[in-house]
Amino acid sequence: MQQQSSRTIQDCHVLIVDDQPSSRLILESLLEDMVECSTTDSASKAIAFCRAQRPDLVLMDVVMPDMSGHDACRLLADIAETSQIPVIFVTGSATDEEQEKCWDAGGVDFVEKPVNPTTLRNRVKSHLNHKMKTDLLEQLIYLDRLTGAFNRHYLEDSLPGIIRDCLRHERDLAFILFDIDFFKQYNDEYGHLQGDTCLHKVSHTTMHSLLRPRDKLIRVGGEEFLVVLPETDTAGALAVAQRLLTVIKALAIPHQHSPEKVVTVSAGVAEYQPSDDRNLKKAVSRADTALYEAKSQGRNCVVVYDVALEGVSE
């Protein structure tokens, strides 16, 4: 799901996976006037692409040298961030046995080679329409309408899967908790409508500053936001947090009760630790402790969690 308003088929992105250059060329040529296409020649590259780019649909060959399309489909379904990407198999055989394998692997459909262009285009169109409607429903459930950021429901429903992935693959996971400095005074001075506009600007600027689709912005409170950064260590999260402070300050939203005279934010950075035992609250509370320290240090700064801070916040 992307943090943006509803799209059309032309805005959708299809990944074509086939080890044969001629097959990739044909499939891409048959679809390129309808939808944005990317191509790759192996299942393992397809998985990496899906993790990084999140296409709306995958057209997957079955027989490939490095890994079968069936196995790739199972792997995609097993990764939280790619599990919602539908896979249509483009298969050279439509025997009963092959059809069973496609469904067992988790494919949403299959098209037999050599492909009939009309059938291919209509199947792709149909599944993209379905995907867009699913995305829209998820947006309504999971997006905060005011800021466009994800809401707490998303945090509660999706984060366990993100944590599970990071633990399974022994990858880092970091959080940035930040809030707008002197926001109560801002609302008192400029009014709540202007306060909403400020929240909207800060949120959108933050989303544009997060460079990977897997990085998520969640509004956890009034003016408090959480950034979830999979596969990111503390140093990486610190760099992201410092970038956020810079770009938000550069918005130059006037705030006469701020020492900087413009809207600024304070941020706390913490890393998820395996000892958290999948307990989200522990990880977020460390980021909260760091944020508290950033506020204590005068705001408009980033603090990385350190165990020594525990005594300070208490």
Partner: peptide, 21 residues
């Protein structure tokens, strides 16, 4: 040609790829 939606240039490219590989 029908399988390539009547795109003659596409057909030629696919034939060339086939002959090459």
């Amino acid at each position: 040609l029908r399988r390539m939606m009547g795109k003659e240039s596409l057909l030629q490219r696919v034939v060339a790829l086939f002959l090459e590989q």
